[in-house]
Each structure stands twice: as structure tokens, then as C-alpha cells.
Design a protein around this nucleic acid. Structure first.
Length: 191
DNA sequence: GGAACGATTGAT
DNA sequence: TCAATCGTTCCT
């Protein structure tokens, strides 16, 4: 993985809610290189974020488009609020709400590079292939043991994101798996 | 109350 | 290319 810069120290700074209280596209881009952590009862699982997508207001592809409901309420929560939704009857997907409370925008975490807890991820995913552990939104939630119980909870409780000084080059593409607003360049993938 | 569909994945 | 699988949404 190409890195445009490496950490100058081992400092790990937890992202504050204010990080998410900004332009959603910018947040999606800047989350690349940050480290996602889940402190589970069986151990710490972590990985570096390498793929994200932005979902905006007035965006037909966004779950928030229809306005606040019981399902999507977390998207309208305070910045950094965790939004986990169940999809295709089988998988969970992880998002972080952006902008001030009341604004329905979020960033979908689509892929991470495994760091800590790889054995736990392999166990949960049922494969030993490192490259198949968390390279998709449903896969990473399975690997990280992230489910609906985490929906609509604040950042930095059991699930955290920290900055260790790494920034990643990225490319921009249309979002995956959507039929509405499918042309918008709101997917960001680390090179 | 019923039917269609979805920000996915893995097998065929 | 397609089945798995079920909560949400939308239509009647």
C-alpha cells in the first residue's frame, strides 16, 4: 500500500466528533488511512480504512433521502454517530454520521486493511485469506463483530477511529451497488 | 395485509 | 449469472 506519509511518532489520536462535523465528501476522503477499532470482549480488532463512500442530503441513493425514520435515525444524529444497517437479509454495513445533528449525511466504510485481531477476524469470517477478511462493507462488519446492536451509538465507545498520522493516496469512482444517482463520484479508494 | 426490493456476498 | 434471506418501504 503506497503511503504519501508515514507516522512521525506512534501517537494515536482518537477522532473527535468535530472531525465528522464537516463536509461529508471531505470526511470520506480523510477517513482513508485512519484506523477503525472494535474493543470486543474477546479482544481488540483493528484495521486501516482503505475504502469509503459519501452519502449526502438530497441524495436519492442515501437511506436518509426519505427523511428520518426509526431505521435511518442514526444518520441524523450528532456527528460521529454510528449507523449500522441490515442489508439483503444477511449482512451489516457500518457508517458514521456527518454534519450537525439533524442533517442526514454519512460515510459508509467499505473496506479496511487488517491490523490487530487477525485471528479473530479469520475465525469470524471462516477464511484464513487475509485479503478476504474485510475488503467489503458486509465482510468488515462480520470480521469486526459489528452488528445492529451498535446502531445509533456514539463514536469512541466500543467502536473507535484513531489517527496515527498516516495519509493515503486515493482514487475517486462512482459508488457501488446503487441504482439511483449511480453516476456521482462519491467513492474513494486508497491506491 | 401483501409484494417488491436492497449502500452484499459467495457459489455456480 | 444467480441464490440466500429478511427488514423496510410502498402499494392496495
Amino acid at each position: 500500500m503506497a503511503r504519501t506519509s508515514t507516522p512521525t511518532s506512534t501517537t494515536k489520536t482518537l477522532l473527535k466528533p468535530e472531525f465528522f462535523n464537516r463536509d461529508t465528501t471531505l470526511v470520506a476522503q480523510e477517513l482513508l488511512g485512519k484506523v477503525l477499532v472494535h474493543r470486543t470482549t474477546t479482544g481488540i480488532i483493528s484495521g486501516r480504512i482503505i475504502e469509503t463512500e459519501a452519502y449526502l442530503r438530497d441524495d436519492p441513493a442515501s437511506h436518509s433521502y426519505i427523511g428520518p425514520t426509526k431505521r435511518n435515525g442514526a444518520i441524523f444524529g450528532p456527528p460521529g454517530t454510528i449507523y449500522v444497517y441490515f442489508i439483503y437479509g444477511m449482512y451489516w454495513c457500518l457508517n458514521f454520521a456527518t454534519r450537525v445533528e439533524g442533517i442526514g449525511e454519512a460515510v459508509l466504510i467499505r473496506g479496511v486493511e487488517p491490523l490487530e485481531g487477525i485471528a479473530l477476524m479469520q475465525q469470524r469470517r471462516g477464511t484464513g485469506n487475509i485479503h478476504q477478511l474485510s475488503n467489503g462493507p458486509g465482510k468488515l462488519c462480520q470480521a469486526f463483530a459489528i452488528t445492529g446492536e451498535h446502531n445509533n451509538t456514539p463514536l469512541n465507545q466500543k467502536i473507535q477511529v484513531y489517527d496515527d498520522g498516516v495519509t493515503l493516496d486515493f482514487i475517486t469512482t462512482p459508488r457501488i451497488g446503487i441504482t439511483k444517482a449511480a453516476d456521482l463520484p462519491l467513492r474513494f479508494v486508497a491506491r
